[in-house]
C-alpha cells in the first residue's frame, strides 16, 4: 500500500489512513439506523462506497483493487439485488408481496420495524458496490460493456 510513487502525497495518505475506517463505520451506522433516523440503505451505501473510492484516490488503483476488485463488486451488486427480491418474495408466503411479516417491536429501538433494516442492508450492498463500479468503470473504462443500473 505504501508505494511512494503511486497515488497522492504523504500527507493525504496519512490522513486517509486515519479517516477511512471512520468513514466506513459511519456508513455502516447510517445503514443500520436507517429505520429510526434519516438515512438508510441508499445514503449509507453511498458513504460506504466513498470510503473505498477514498482509498483509490489516495493510494492509486492497485491498492484499492487489493481490497475490492471489479469481480467482487459485481458479485456484491447482484447479491444485494437478489437478497432484496428474495426478502420481498418471502412476504408472499404469508400473504402479500413486500409484506412486513416480522414483529415490529418498539418504535425508536435498533431492533424494530420488522423487515425494513434487512431491506436497508440489501440496498446498501447494491448501492455501495454499484457506485464503486460506476466510478472505477468511468475512471478506467477497460472492460468493453457497461451495464450499470440501480
Amino acid at each position: 500500500m505504501d508505494d511512494p510513487k503511486k497515488g497522492m502525497t504523504l500527507i493525504v495518505k496519512t490522513i486517509t489512513r486515519l479517516t477511512v475506517g471512520l468513514i466506513l463505520l459511519f456508513g455502516i451506522y447510517i445503514v443500520s439506523h436507517g429505520h429510526v433516523s434519516p438515512g438508510g440503505g441508499f445514503a449509507g451505501g453511498v458513504i460506504i462506497s466513498l470510503s473505498f473510492i477514498h482509498i483509490m484516490l489516495a493510494f492509486g488503483e492497485e491498492a484499492a483493487f487489493k481490497k475490492v476488485n471489479q469481480g467482487i463488486a459485481s458479485l456484491f451488486e447482484s447479491f444485494g439485488a437478489i437478497l432484496f427480491i428474495t426478502i420481498a418474495a418471502i412476504g408472499m408466503g404469508s400473504g402479500y408481496f413486500f409484506l412486513n411479516f416480522l414483529r415490529k417491536g418498539e418504535p425508536f429501538k435498533l431492533f424494530s420495524s420488522g423487515l425494513i433494516p434487512l431491506y436497508n442492508i440489501a440496498i446498501s450492498f447494491k448501492v455501495a458496490s454499484g457506485l464503486f463500479m460506476i466510478v472505477i468503470l468511468l475512471m478506467l473504462l477497460k472492460i468493453p460493456k457497461k451495464g450499470e443500473k440501480q
Partner: peptide, 12 residues
C-alpha cells in the same frame, strides 16, 4: 437515484 443511473450511463 434514477437520475444518477442515467447520468452515469450517458457519461459512459
Amino acid at each position: 437515484v434514477i437520475g444518477l443511473a442515467v447520468t452515469a450511463l450517458i457519461a459512459a
